[in-house]
Simulated assay, not measured.
Amino acid sequence: MKTIYVWSLLCLLIVPVSCNANNNNSNLAFKPEKSQEIYTTKTDPDTRNIQVALLLDTSNSMDGLIDQAKAQLWEIVNELSYAKCGHYNIKLQIALYEYGNDRLPSQEGYIRQVLPFSNDLDEISKELFALTTNGGNEYCGKVINTSINQLDWKKSNDHLKLIFIAGNEPFTQGPIDYKDAATDAKEKDITVNTIFCGNYKQGMQTKWKDGANLTNGEYSAIDHNRETIHIATPYDDIILQLNRRLNNTYIYYGNEGSKKIGLQAEQDRNARSYSAANAVSRTISKSSGFYKNKSWDLVDAAEDKDFELEEVEKEELPQELKNKSKTELKQYVAKKSNERKEIQKKIQELNKKRMVYIQNNSKKDDTNLEAALIKAIKTQGERKSFSWKK
């Protein structure tokens, strides 16, 4: 038995690091500023993560950038939802920082962690919509360095770890040299991508391209003031009707459940504030594997093999479910789960037709935030054996 154990241990030690290798590292996430909760992220050997840290300049001239981030979030999520990496499950985590706003603490370098790495898409949307702009000092090297040190980056190089920094002031400003920050990023297998809001040559002259080159990242220049065009399609009304049915399959539980289901409805309204077509994009995201809410929804929670539905206290349930027996509750959750899968399948089928319509009725735009993010993520993902097949 000892011989078998030694050989098993040796085999584990010599497994090569690649898209096909298992990773058993576990990390403790950075403590969020608002909730003061500590999130522990257990590494799943059957999962590959796409970790994206968005560092957004929120100084006075960046209203257009923030507007694009709000308007294009769901299309970005939808495009990433098509990611594949062998037989692995793909998990998307997004972190958000703002910098260059003089409302932020000067001792912190006018930088704020808005959200640590999260797969809660409603929470990400909420925080984006809460961002406002104001004048300040934009320290690119400092915010990159801060995100590297604070965030719960995966240790294994199997995962796709990306920083996107967007702004329009010289990349050289601030107390930390961007070259030092880039060196630190490269040592941790984190790729820095820079998005200059303005003229391409001006971004090169102010070292934004150099900031990306140091980690083999992508440099892009965008028109941050261009309004996002959402293409309406003949399938939108049906998809929005399905969204209402989809929302009715959520069963909240726990202390935060009722608040979270309210947040879901609020982000539906935020998406629709741009257009019905943008609300459709959010609905597509809600039908994807990235939209999971097991911390407050019984249907998603019940999919976890470690979750025990029988252990949920009646006080944690909605009023209309408190008098159900354990068996009745289990049957109800199963019914809602089947309904959700059926609705999500219909949404995905309609989305295929919707995408063909959009491709045939729109012009390609490579000068916005969405295009810059997607291009870089796909390019760098391919280096790690990720692919995008719809």
Results as ranks from 00 to 15, higher is better:
Ile14Met: 05
Ala21Gly: 15
Asn25Asp: 12
Ser26Val: 03
Ile38His: 06
Thr43Ala: 06
Asn49Asp: 15
Leu55Ser: 11
Asp57Met: 09
Thr58Val: 02
Asn60Thr: 04
Met62Cys: 04
Leu80Ser: 05
Lys84His: 12
His87Lys: 07
His87Met: 07
Ile90Pro: 15
Ala95His: 14
Tyr97Trp: 07
Glu98Trp: 08
Gln107Asp: 15
Gln107Lys: 09
Arg112Val: 11
Val114Asn: 12
Phe117Val: 12
Ser118Met: 12
Asp122Phe: 08
Glu127Trp: 02
Thr132Cys: 01
Tyr139Pro: 05
Thr146Pro: 00
Asn149Gln: 14
Asp152Ile: 01
Trp153Met: 01
Asn157Glu: 10
Asp158Cys: 11
Leu162Pro: 02
Phe171Thr: 01
Lys179Pro: 04
Ala181Ser: 15
Ala181Val: 14
Asp184Val: 04
Lys188Cys: 09
Asp189Phe: 05
Ile190Tyr: 04
Ile190Pro: 13
Ile195Phe: 11
Phe196Pro: 12
Phe196Asn: 14
Gly203Cys: 01
Lys207Val: 00
Gly211Asn: 12
Gly211Val: 09
Ala212Gln: 03
Asn213Trp: 01
Thr215Arg: 10
Thr215Val: 06
Asn225Gly: 06
Ile231Pro: 03
Tyr235Ser: 06
Ile239His: 11
Gln241Asn: 14
Gln241Cys: 06
Leu242Asp: 05
Asn248Lys: 08
Tyr252Cys: 02
Gly254Asn: 07
Glu256Arg: 11
Glu256Asn: 15
Ala265Ser: 09
Glu266Met: 05
Ala271Tyr: 02
Ser273Trp: 04
Ala279Ser: 14
Val280Ser: 04
Ile284Met: 09
Lys292Gln: 15
Asp304Ala: 11
Asp304Cys: 08
Asp304Asn: 13
Lys305Ala: 12
Glu311Tyr: 07
Glu313His: 08
Pro318Asp: 00
Pro318Thr: 00
Gln319Tyr: 04
Glu320Met: 00
Lys322Val: 01
Ser325Tyr: 01
Lys326Glu: 06
Thr327Asn: 13
Tyr332Pro: 04
Lys336His: 13
Glu342Thr: 14
Ile343Lys: 12
Gln348Ala: 15
Asn351Gln: 09
Lys353Gln: 13
Ile358Asn: 03
Glu370Lys: 15
Ala371Trp: 12
Ala371Ile: 08
Ala371Pro: 13
Ile374Leu: 15
Ser387Leu: 04
Lys389Asn: 15
